[in-house]
Nucleic acid binder design. Structure first.
Length: 294
DNA sequence: AAGCTTTGACCTATA
DNA sequence: TTATAGGTCAAAGCT
């Protein structure tokens, strides 16, 4: 593809670890496992990491997530989405079910405001049009800021992450905390891969649904070989059967960069407005095959 | 026995 | 300087 797709940006070398079993996977290229350590403006740290730009066409005013999905941006070559830092997104349904993604029950139920608000705060975007407009800019900016560092923060909408917290990488929980800005407790995970500094923060609602996932830092290792049955360590808790993902809402956002020159895209918003939650269902379905494979 | 989760304490950044 | 919030550490227990 000539244009860089979101998945391409997100999933890539170090970051992308697709599970071979996964029906969907994305081949990334530019965004690699390493997130921009700093923006073009030289802003350091996670907060400044730029979100992966989503090349969405500006022309569609009635933009819906389906449009988004249909676009090469998300689907990429294999129609799959992968988590920015680690795994694959359970978007199998995206392609085939784009027609039904108008509303995500789970998303609305669980914490619609959380994800969206978070994004809005981060991006300061209030409506689709604005977002759409921003996207191109984001991309442009992103392209200009393709510095890949190990530090970056990306929020992944729950629907995208879904069971995959199961991104194929092994995560170990090292802490949990109730933060004020959110009613939901945050769980802190580290990549279990030796020397890998990648972390992720998962915000889980009281009902067990994941309301937000934030990835910090890229994996400094290519990716676990999933062709072989991932060892427990490499499997996310959800895969191990200990936990099941019920992504309530996923937010993929690159941080507060919005305040700066960076661009941000509010995925959650898209979800809320145009997505139908099939993921809960899909999740289960996907989960089963996985479990079977296991 | 190894690895993971839990959880309270501690550390650091920010207002 | 202090209070608060967010993030991390590490011991204990569990699988």
């Amino acid at each position: 593809m000539s244009s860089t797709s979101f998945t391409d940006l997100l999933g890539s070398s170090g970051v992308d670890c697709y599970e071979d079993d996964e029906d969907l996977r994305v081949s990334g290229s530019s965004f690699g496992g390493y997130y921009p350590e700093r923006t073009g403006s030289g802003l350091p740290k996670f907060k400044t990491a730029q979100p992966p730009p989503l090349p969405i066409s500006q022309s569609s005013h009635n933009f819906t997530f389906s449009d988004y999905l249909d676009s090469p941006l998300l689907l990429s070559s294999s129609h799959s989405l992968i988590s920015p830092t680690t795994g694959t997104f359970p978007l199998q349904g995206f392609n085939g079910t784009t027609n039904n993604h108008l509303d995500f029950p789970w998303q609305l139920q669980s914490q619609p405001s959380n994800a969206s608000s978070a994004l809005q705060e981060t991006y300061g975007v209030q409506d689709h049009e604005k977002k759409q407009e921003m996207i191109p800019n984001e991309i442009a900016t992103q392209n200009n800021n393709q510095s890949f560092g190990t530090e970056r923060q990306i929020k992944i909408p729950a629907y995208m992450v879904s069971r995959n917290s199961n991104d194929g990488y092994g995560w170990r929980k090292y802490g949990q905390k109730q933060v004020k800005k959110s009613e939901n407790p945050r769980s802190y995970f580290k990549c279990t891969y030796p020397d890998c500094v990648s972390k992720k923060i998962v915000e889980t609602a009281s009902d067990g649904q994941i309301t937000e996932i934030i990835y910090k830092g890229g994996h400094n290792h290519p990716k676990p070989e999933f062709t072989k049955r991932p060892s427990q360590s490499s499997l996310p808790s959800s895969v191990n059967g200990r936990r099941l993902f019920n992504p309530a809402s996923v937010v993929s956002e690159p941080h507060d960069q919005s305040e700066n020159s960076s661009i941000s895209f509010d995925y959650s918003d898209l979800e809320q407005k145009s997505f139908k939650s099939e993921y809960g269902e899909i999740d289960e379905e996907e989960e089963q095959p996985e479990m079977k494979r296991m």
